[in-house]
């Protein structure tokens, strides 16, 4: 499986190693193995309850896996190697690692009591990466990039869902992460607002940012994905280029799912 490493000298952007996760008796992730190359756009598809969102949350350690681990550019996330074994990191160390992984939520989760500008500028200041004026300049720049330069002083609740999600993307970009994870970024949006958010994500994909996207937008996946991953019952059923997985799926489960959503 990992023979590709010998060809590409750079370490994988994200590597998921035999990750298992249980919620009570439910085996949500069952030995998931996934490698995401730098600059690659990976779209994860699958029926609800298949473990897609949990996989994303394990990658930035919002959920701790019970077994296995995730590494970012070769460095384990949330754990450190101690001889043969893996030891849990302190919360402070995990928080420091999170700065390198952007996360965009289904429900945006903007901070409602902060202005749009402060939402974007907060993290670089709080983590000591930038001074306040630098962070605000960066925030204005990023807001311009997602087409919301004029909304800097608004509060999140004054914006439409699509605008809020674009602010959330700018907020994730403010830490200049190596990879950005999108957890169903358009599922909470009215249909007419989906396009503006997808356009921003497309723009990111073209600029060579590493993206992992959980979505139900099959057309979008076909358009931007370098690789489509299909999950079911906590396992990766198949993966490959969109033309292969979406048009000539090998497994019945994938075919069945696609026939329902297309």
């Amino acid at each position: 499986m990992t023979t590709a490493e010998a060809v590409d000298v750079r370490p994988a952007a994200v590597e998921v190693h035999a990750v298992h996760k249980w919620f009570g008796a439910q085996h949500v992730l069952d030995g998931v193995e996934l490698t995401v190359r730098p600059g690659e756009v990976t779209v994860v598809l699958g029926p609800s309850g298949s473990g897609k969102s949990t996989l994303l949350r394990v990658i930035n350690h919002l959920e701790k896996p019970e077994a296995g681990h995730v590494s970012l550019n070769g460095e384990p996330i949330g754990v450190r190697r101690h001889g043969e074994r893996l030891k849990e990191l302190s919360e402070r160390a995990i928080l420091a690692q999170r700065g390198r992984i952007g996360f965009v939520f289904q429900n945006f989760n903007l901070f409602p009591h902060l202005s749009v500008l402060d939402n974007v500028a907060a993290a670089p200041v709080a983590t000591g990466k930038l001074t306040k004026p630098e962070a605000q300049a960066l925030a204005r720049d990023l807001l311009g990039r997602v087409g919301l330069a004029d909304k800097a002083d608004a509060y999140p609740r004054q914006l439409s869902g699509g605008q809020q999600q674009r602010v959330a993307i700018a907020r994730a970009l403010a830490l200049r992460p190596g990879v950005i994870l999108f957890d169903e970024p358009t599922s909470a949006l009215d249909p007419e607002l989906v396009g503006e958010v997808l356009a921003v994500i497309k723009d990111l994909a073209r600029s060579g940012t590493t993206l992992v996207i959980v979505t139900h937008e099959i057309g979008f996946a076909r358009e931007i994905a370098d690789r489509v991953v299909f999950m079911d019952e906590g396992r990766i059923v198949e993966q490959g280029p969109p033309a292969q997985v979406l048009d000539h799926p090998e497994h019945d489960r994938t075919r069945d799912f696609l026939s329902k959503v297309l």
Binding site: L62, L95, A123
Partner: peptide, 20 residues
Amino acid sequence: GQHEAASALGLPKRYQFARI
């Protein structure tokens, strides 16, 4: 979701409590 967002941004614990 607010806790998760603050945590996902890697905001230090004290900042999360005091500012978010």
